[in-house]
Design a protein around this nucleic acid. Sequence first.
DNA 1: CATGTGAGGTCAATATATTGACTATTCGGG
DNA 2: CCCGAATAGTCAATATATTGACCTCACATG
Lengths: 143, 143
Amino acid sequence: MPGTTERDLIVGVIQLANLLTRRLAPIFEKSKITPQQWAVLSVLGESEGALSLAGLARKLLVSKQNMTGMVARLEQLGLAEREADPADLRSSKVQLSRRGRALVDKLRPSYDEWVRTLGKDVSQRDMQSLTRTVDRLISELEA
Amino acid sequence: MPGTTERDLIVGVIQLANLLTRRLAPIFEKSKITPQQWAVLSVLGESEGALSLAGLARKLLVSKQNMTGMVARLEQLGLAEREADPADLRSSKVQLSRRGRALVDKLRPSYDEWVRTLGKDVSQRDMQSLTRTVDRLISELEA
DNA sequence: CATGTGAGGTCAATATATTGACTATTCGGG
DNA sequence: CCCGAATAGTCAATATATTGACCTCACATG
């Protein structure tokens, strides 16, 4: 088959992740946040009460060191707040600031709409299959 | 459904990409290269003749600025070589060095084996569906 | 053949992400 | 009760990735 550039699944997933980030960025650009920052804010918005930094890192499957920086930047932007955890002197609790909450509420509809539009060239069945398989592979690789 | 933490497809794909990179790293660690460097070397290994930096960037769907750095590091490692393109004074051609070629040949089997083992908890049908849908979404987002 | 557009490449700034190394605190078992 | 192991967090180094700004060269159109 001449001309068929076999795209490796691994390379494909990494490229797709980069492309998603790139295409998503304009939605958040006016609010001066990045898609990854959105992911953190979104988790914070859905969590009852505050989360520890390590808890956030586990939920988003990134290293705690990475989360240290992410939260520091969100704090810098005035979107998240940290306070000491009285029950554990090592730990701190992170939560949305009032501005952070307002931003999440404001951006949520645009984000959801973008995600809905995403698979427009792909059948709903294939999109559901994709989500399921991605979750399975994540579980496999986490173990 | 209490306890069901809906994982967003976008977030899932990004997490999967990060996990794949993390789990793949040990294969390349002894050779002092990263999974992304492997991707570049692999493309160079399969291409007839040399590729321009911009051509490499297009093939791997990253910015030319990123590719500048990637190739510089591969050159630093003695795995790739650049030479001026006589047909275009702006451009240069990148190709594997002898050491680079040897490294690709050496690592190829381990990489292929790792990829084959990847979907062991997932049916072959779902893996093929995944590959197809990832490619479709990439096309959609590239447009 | 001159000029403007666009393509190839680099550099700088910044965000994301990893690991390694370290401190401080918690917690379980002897 | 105390001590070693595990957990929470930080800092530093490095790779990946983006955009913006800029230079050089190619090429088409007038």
